[in-house]
């Protein structure tokens, strides 16, 4: 029961309290790039969630079974980035074969997932938080992906509505998106202190 509770706390914590986009500033580039349309944002979020779960689990295994026992921590970053690149390639091939329309709509963004900070950031934070079992690692990875999806979907909804608004020309596009994101972080700060 304790174990389940810790999983639940970890999951809720990483989705709303320590949301990667709003508190750790990870994944801002795609957050601003793709969040123009809700359906694309949701697709991107799903792809990221899938890759983070895969990469989080794999890097955790590599770290505990291979890098730490053999004292190869110095190659940690290289290993992580290679695992992530491999996982992204896998997702790309899978989508191309089974969901061609989805593949087409992602266009350039799929290879860009490799350089999405959420994924590498998550792997690094799993290491920093000293997560000591694979189930928790998987739950946290999944939660980080869900947190990213939530953030990017909220943003896309707001930006769809904002297309109709009259924004000063110099603020149009990225600047207003950043300011909106700032206000969202303020809203998400209300969640901190929820779990103690």
């Amino acid at each position: 029961m304790d174990f389940l509770e810790s999983l639940l706390v970890g999951f809720v914590g990483i989705v709303v309290i320590n949301n990667f986009v709003f508190t750790k500033f990870l994944g801002i580039c795609p957050y601003l790039g793709v969040s123009g349309r809700l359906d694309m944002a949701f697709g991107m979020g799903c792809a990221v969630t899938f890759v983070t779960t895969l990469a989080g689990g794999l890097t955790w295994l590599i770290d505990t079974l291979f890098l730490v026992p053999f004292h190869l921590e110095v190659t940690r970053y290289v290993c992580y980035i290679l695992v992530i690149a491999g996982a992204v390639q896998l997702v790309e091939m899978y989508l191309k074969k089974f969901f061609p329309p989805l593949y087409k709509s992602f266009g350039i963004f799929l290879p860009l997932i490799t350089t999405n900070c959420v994924i590498l950031g998550l792997c690094l934070f799993l290491n920093l938080w000293q997560v000591d079992n694979i189930v928790l690692a998987l739950v946290l990875s999944f939660g980080a992906g869900i947190g990213f999806t939530v953030a990017i979907c909220i943003m896309a909804g707001i930006r769809e509505a904002m297309e109709l608004a009259d924004i000063p020309t110099c603020l149009a596009g990225a600047p207003i998106a950043l300011i909106t994101a700032g206000l969202l972080t303020l809203a998400f700060m209300g969640f901190s202190g929820m779990i103690r």
């Binding site: 500033f25 020309t169 110099c170 990225a174 600047p175 300011i179 700032g182 206000l183 972080t185």
Partner: peptide, 23 residues
């Protein structure tokens, strides 16, 4: 120091650069 400060300051900075460079 909070995330909001980062987002809003960068947003305004981008707006200023857009204004200067005459988008």
């Amino acid at each position: 120091l909070m995330p909001i400060g980062a987002f809003v300051t960068l947003g305004l900075m981008l707006a200023a650069v857009n204004q200067i460079a005459g988008k």
